[in-house]
Simulated scan of single mutants.
Amino acid sequence: MFVRVYDKLNSRYYKSIVYGTINVGWFLQYIVLNPLKNCFELVEYLDKSIEPAQPLVETIQRDNDDFIVYENALLLKYKHYCKKNEKYMNIDKLCGYTDVCENFEFIADIIDNKSVLAEKYKIKLRQLSDKDKWDYIQTQEDANEFMKLFVGFHDSTLDKLVYVEEHGYTGVTAIFDNSGWYGVVELCFEGLLELNIRPAKENYDRYIYEATMLVENETVFWADGYMENEDPAYNGSYIKAMNLKWRKIV
């Protein structure tokens, strides 16, 4: 599972793979890795200080096939550890990677302190499962490099767009053809925030002559026209998402 986390204390965002979750619903908490501090953090799913409560953790990719679910009888070993070591033990459900959930000392530590240095425990640091299949746009430098490679979308066309909405996931896959300069690429926008597509009018061609790609606050904004800053009043096509990855297909 890949998420965007809002660090309320420092008013900034960061992205992380989820290493585990504790409890469910109103009491749900995420175990994530803060790359800005190189520490594991226990983050509340909801900011309950405002009404209505708002998510502090937003899902980008919901890939948790390797998660193990511990509840009922499977939690007895952990509860025995807590009782023996006088630790907090009121957990109804624990999900995550095996090396995380069965490291009782780590679980008790992060519940007590909310933050644990990454090097303190022998927990395997994960990579995105599809990182060898896609190039990720993570910084403005990544965006600039792609724009240079794809010639700023000059003379390209948007040939296909597929919108996907599932439980805990929204995404758009767009196929752009720029065969005259580079080739055909597939852009996958995940954790979709905004989508506005305006086809060419009857008396216009469908070619894109310039475009924009901006990375800010762990989001990516793409538009089929040039602009210095994100403009919500732009009357062309634009897509905004928490994550963007791409690959050349032709």
Rank of each mutant, 00 (worst) to 15 (best):
P52D: 14
V18M: 04
S49I: 04
P52F: 13
Y30F: 01
F67N: 00
I17C: 03
Y78W: 10
A53F: 06
L36K: 15
Y78T: 11
V43N: 13
K15C: 01
E71S: 06
E41I: 07
K79N: 15
K15T: 00
T21A: 07
F40N: 03
Y19C: 14
L36I: 15
E51Q: 12
V32F: 12
V69F: 07
K79G: 15
C39A: 15
H80E: 14
H80Y: 09
I68E: 11
V24L: 11
Q54G: 01
K79H: 15
K79I: 14
K77D: 15
L33I: 00
V24A: 10
I60L: 10
K48R: 10
W26D: 03
V18C: 07
A53W: 04
T21C: 10
G20L: 07
K48Q: 11
P35T: 05
Q61K: 12
F27N: 08
Y45A: 03
I31D: 11
L74R: 05
I22E: 14
L42R: 12
P52I: 11
V57W: 00
S49H: 05
A73L: 05
Y78R: 07
A73S: 09
I68A: 08
I68V: 14
N64I: 05
K37T: 15
E51A: 09
G20Y: 07
I22H: 13
T59F: 10
K79Y: 12
L56S: 13
L42Q: 14
Y30N: 01
R62G: 02
K79D: 15
I31F: 13
A73C: 05
P52Y: 15
E41F: 05
P55V: 12
Q54K: 01
N72P: 01
V43F: 11
V32P: 11
E71T: 04
L56K: 10
Q61P: 08
W26G: 02
I50Y: 06
E51W: 09
A53K: 08
L46G: 02
L46D: 04
V18S: 05
L56F: 07
L28F: 05
L36W: 14
P52N: 14
P35Q: 06
F40D: 05
V18W: 00
N64A: 06
V24I: 09
L75G: 13
E71L: 03
V24G: 09
N72D: 08
L56V: 10
V18D: 02
L76H: 03
V32D: 15
D65K: 08
I17R: 02
T59Y: 06
A53I: 04
T59S: 10
Y45E: 13
W26Y: 14
V57R: 01
V69C: 06
I22L: 15
E51P: 04
A53Q: 07
E41S: 10
D66N: 12
V57S: 01
W26A: 05
G20S: 11
L33G: 02
T21P: 09
D63H: 03
L46F: 09
L33Q: 00
C39V: 06
E58Y: 01
D63C: 13
K15R: 06
T59E: 10
Y14A: 04
S49R: 06
F27T: 07
Y78P: 11
C39S: 13
E51N: 12
